[in-house]
Amino acid sequence: MTIRIAIRNSVHALALLLLSHVSISQVRLQVFLETPEGTYPGSVFVAGDFNGWDPGSPGELLQYNGKDYTIILDSLKPVPFQYKFTRGSWEDVEVMPDGSDRNNRVLELRSDTIIRLRVEAWKSAFSVRRKMSTAGKQVFALPDSFDMPGLGRFAKIHVYLPASYKHSRKQYPVIYMHDGQNLFDELRAPFGEWGIDETLDSLVRAGHPEAIIVGIDNGPRRVNEYTPFDTEKFGAGQGDAYVAFIANRLKPFIDKKYRTLRAPEHTAIAGSSLGGLISYYAWLSKPNVFGNAGVFSPSFWIAPRILPLTDSLAATVTGKCFFYIGEQEGDRYVKDMQEVADRLGARTRAIMYSVVDPIGEHKEASWRKWFAEFYLWIMGNGFNRQLRTR
């Protein structure tokens, strides 16, 4: 059964009318970038949904020509994409002149293009504005890092426990989430946090069900770990090893350490962007472990093989799958998600919720806005829903 909520407006229809009838498979973009005084001789990179939002990818390093930084990006697809400029990490990304966060830049190419842009300021110029920790008292960092077999690194884990945990003998459902840095604490979140702990505290006070949340920090090879298939641009996909780590090492530890409901119907996996992709893949490939999934703004563009995999495995999954994307992320990415959801819906017994938010963007603020809706639906009977469009 599918619950599809398509929140639309006239802007989308107008955009479709304006699309060119000429089919262009690839375009070339040259960027000339003016930067704040003192940037040179530092490095400048461009990161966006065309490179998995890698803030320091050598392939997207701009060159200094004595006046501006410049780069030529070949083989771009003529679809809308979002991007930002960085100095190699999300701790030093472009910001507004007053130091506040800058929205993602958006560009849609129809042909080979040259553009001139300006970075107003870098985040590091405002480092004196120290952020404060916002993690609630129910959020705990596990003292030991976890070896991740096949991935060559250790994982840092944070756990949210409901307020009733220490005063009861109840068992709780568990949601495993990726990009753990961005879930609970503004101090650790380079783009702003999801506010998971604050959201759940409020929902529980209102009488809604409780759950344990397990946040897994990402690592230096995030694109590879969250991608289940090999790609020409990014190399070997390590998604199978990452999912196996959660299913075979982390989940057994959490189930032993905490009072959990261990069955698949009480176990969910959720994330955004590449985290949305790997959440869907985990739910699809391991339904005996993960009974429910939250798929926010999934980067299906990087994994076209997800379509035939959906066709072959859809009949094996049950439970619930929540799909979300913002229309401001670009028509191509909306269509990618809807195609996967349509194929799944045609072949599965699972219950689905698919939503397109007309003002939603590819960023934490949008995912935070829809997390409560996902949580209430995934924890309820699968049919109740509450719309929040602003």
Rank of each mutant, 00 (worst) to 15 (best):
Y333W: 11
V334D: 02
R343W: 04
D336S: 08
A350F: 14
R347A: 12
Y333C: 02
A350D: 13
R343G: 09
D336H: 13
V356C: 02
V355E: 01
D331A: 08
E339F: 10
V356E: 01
Q338Y: 07
A350R: 13
Y333H: 14
A346E: 13
V334I: 15
M352G: 13
I359H: 02
M337S: 04
A350M: 14
A341F: 05
D336P: 05
M337K: 03
P358R: 03
A350G: 12
V355H: 00
Y333T: 06
R347Y: 07
V340H: 07
D357K: 01
R349C: 08
A341I: 07
E339R: 15
I359S: 04
K335E: 12
V334M: 05
V356Y: 00
A346R: 14
R332D: 13
A346T: 11
Y333N: 09
E339H: 14
Y333K: 11
S354Q: 12
Y333Q: 12
M352Q: 15
D342T: 11
T348L: 08
G345H: 06
I351R: 11
R347V: 10
Y333M: 13
A341K: 03
D336M: 05
Q338I: 09
S354W: 03
R349A: 15
T348Q: 07
P358Q: 07
P358K: 03
R349H: 14
V334H: 01
R332C: 10
K335I: 12
A350W: 14
R347M: 08
R349Q: 15
Y353W: 14
I351P: 02
Q338S: 05
R332N: 11
G360T: 00
Q338M: 08
R347G: 06
V340M: 07
D336R: 04
I351K: 12
G360I: 00
V355S: 00
L344R: 10
D336C: 06
R347Q: 14
V334S: 04
A346Q: 14
V356G: 01
G360C: 03
L344W: 11
R343V: 11
Y353T: 02
I359N: 02
T348G: 07
G345R: 05
V356K: 01
A341E: 06
V355D: 00
R347S: 10
V355A: 02
M352I: 13
D342I: 05
G345I: 12
Y333I: 05
I359P: 00
V334L: 06
D342C: 04
M352H: 06
D342L: 08
R332F: 13
A350N: 13
L344E: 07
T348M: 08
M352P: 04
M352Y: 05
D336N: 14
E339Y: 11
R349D: 15
I359Q: 03
Y353R: 01
A346G: 12
R332E: 13
D342P: 00
V356S: 01
D342N: 09
M352S: 14
